[in-house]
Design a protein around this nucleic acid. Structure first.
Length: 434
RNA sequence: GGCGCCGUACCCAAGUGGUAAGGGGGAGGUCUGCAAAACCUUUAUUCACCGGUUCGAAUCCGGUCGGCGCCUCCA
């Protein structure tokens, strides 16, 4: 019998911190937006993946069985363009990126979906059936150019994740000045589901919809459908996809099935470097391997990327890395000491009345040891405050350590500390616990 | 214009209505041949501002000022 969740998570959909309650007791269906694999993932991408990793691991810590879905976006406009311009096949372009993603995931101890991560090109038939459903239900239309678009006006909940004001949305079918599809769509907000009428050039499939390829906006839904079904519990991703993309996912799923797709939406803020947004033109795009080369341990990198509250921008600086390394070594030191029983090494200060009660002292230490999981849960339940959790744990352990030098630490006490720390380290994954 | 975030000591920063964590830096001390490291002590009568709710507000509500991000598929 699974215990109820005690996790409060900020739900973008309702703009409130809410108690997380899954649809089915004991099980969580979690979808996290995966990487576009036409180019290398930087530490900003990994920050988001790590926030999702912590979320998954914390749910598991609470006793939930987490079914996780994730995608590799291996075909969309940019990948196709890149592939064509370099003369590589799609898989020649994406495979090295995927390999490097798995390598970094291992380095950072990212938990990934157990059944694997499907590529968008592997779920084309699901995408086709989704588009077909949307056509059948009147949410999508085929334009004269062969593309298929979604009409947001057909779906009342459109824009709720981002918070779009649909009240003054034009209801007349007109073209818009900022029309990204070259005047081919009919209305603002109509978004493409299917690129049709394509040549047979290795970037298209022969399907019931004709020759074409699924657009980015239908790939996540297709992967969600194939791995988790049409109803999930939590949808995660980077903040940048909050505008449009996540509302598109929701519109596609709810339009196609007519049921609530997902009640909880969580978004990770961006990482910046030395106060500046990462960009190729600025030349400050950072990769995990670069930090590793600077001498920081994988655990330090992992903590530096998860320490700061996920809904705040993280400013990656040298100082931040140094502080993280220092903090981590303090914590590790305390853990190392406290996992061994010890005899008192200092003379207990003589009390005024001269009485020492060793068994009382031991009980006080016991109580402090039992605070370890409490302190951890309290902070993690509060929308995954890793920073507060780590800070409080460090202080608590150092406090226990100071007591232990006076009162000693029994074998059973050190064993309990080891058990607690080892369990919560399954979530944080920043400590060596032999 | 729209959506969102943020203003807490010299700096970074936690604070989920009950009386301001922590870290860095600074200052003083212990130790030391000197230095470093380590350890100890110290460092906000007050949370941008103004109202309101409350027995009680950094925390909630309204407003003002200031900073920031996003608004063409970039996590």
């Amino acid at each position: 019998m699974a215990k109820p969740s005690t996790l409060y998570i900020y739900n973008t959909l309702n703009r409130r911190k809410e108690l997380f309650v899954p649809r089915r007791e004991g099980t969580v269906k979690l979808f996290t937006c995966g990487p576009s694999v036409y180019r290398e993932q930087h530490i900003g991408n990994y920050r988001t993946f790590l926030f999702e990793d912590i979320l998954q691991r914390y749910l598991e810590y609470q006793g939930f069985d987490v079914e996780r879905g994730m995608n590799f976006t291996d075909i969309e406009d940019k990948a196709v363009a890149e592939s064509k311009s370099t003369g590589h096949t799609l898989s020649e372009l994406t495979q090295p990126v995927i390999d490097s993603f798995f390598e970094s995931s291992k380095l950072l101890e990212l938990s990934l979906p157990k059944p694997g991560i499907p590529r968008a090109t592997e779920v084309v038939s699901e995408a086709v059936s989704l588009v077909q459903r949307l056509l059948d239900r009147g949410h999508a239309y085929r334009h004269t150019d062969g593309n298929i678009y979604y009409d947001p006006l057909s779906y009342p909940g459109f824009g709720e994740v981002f918070g779009l004001d649909m009240s003054n949305w034009p209801t007349k079918r007109v073209r818009f000045a900022k029309d990204t599809y070259d005047g081919r769509r009919w209305n603002r907000g109509d978004f493409v589901l299917w690129h049709g009428n394509l040549p047979d050039d290795g970037f298209s499939w022969d399907t019931d919809l004709g020759r074409g390829r699924p657009a980015w906006n239908v790939q996540d839904p297709a992967i969600i459908l194939s791995s988790l079904g049409s109803e999930i519990d939590i949808h995660c991703g980077g903040i940048d996809n909050l505008y449009r993309h996540h509302d598109y996912n929701r519109a596609v799923m709810e339009g196609a099935f007519g049921t609530e797709f997902c009640p909880y939406w969580a978004h990770g803020e961006h990482l910046i470097v030395e106060g500046k947004k990462m960009s190729k033109s600025r030349g400050n795009v950072m990769y995990p391997s670069q930090i590793l080369k600077r001498g920081y341990s994988p655990h330090t990198i992992r903590l530096s990327l998860t320490y700061i509250y996920y809904r705040e921008q993280l400013n990656m600086t040298d100082e931040h890395l140094q502080n993280t390394a220092r903090l981590l070594s303090r914590l590790q030191k305390s853990v190392d000491v406290l996992m061994q029983p010890q005899a008192p090494t200092e003379q207990a200060p003589t009390e005024k009345n001269g009485q020492q009660r060793p068994e009382w002292e031991a009980q006080r230490t016991d109580r402090m040891i039992e605070e370890i999981p409490t302190v951890f849960r309290l902070n993690m339940d509060n929308d995954l405050r890793v920073k507060s959790a780590v800070d409080d744990l460090t202080r608590l352990l150092e406090h226990i350590q100071r007591r232990a030098s006076v009162t000693g630490l029994s074998k059973s006490q050190s064993t309990r500390i080891r058990t607690h720390m080892s369990k919560l380290n399954e979530v944080l994954r920043i400590l060596r616990i032999e």
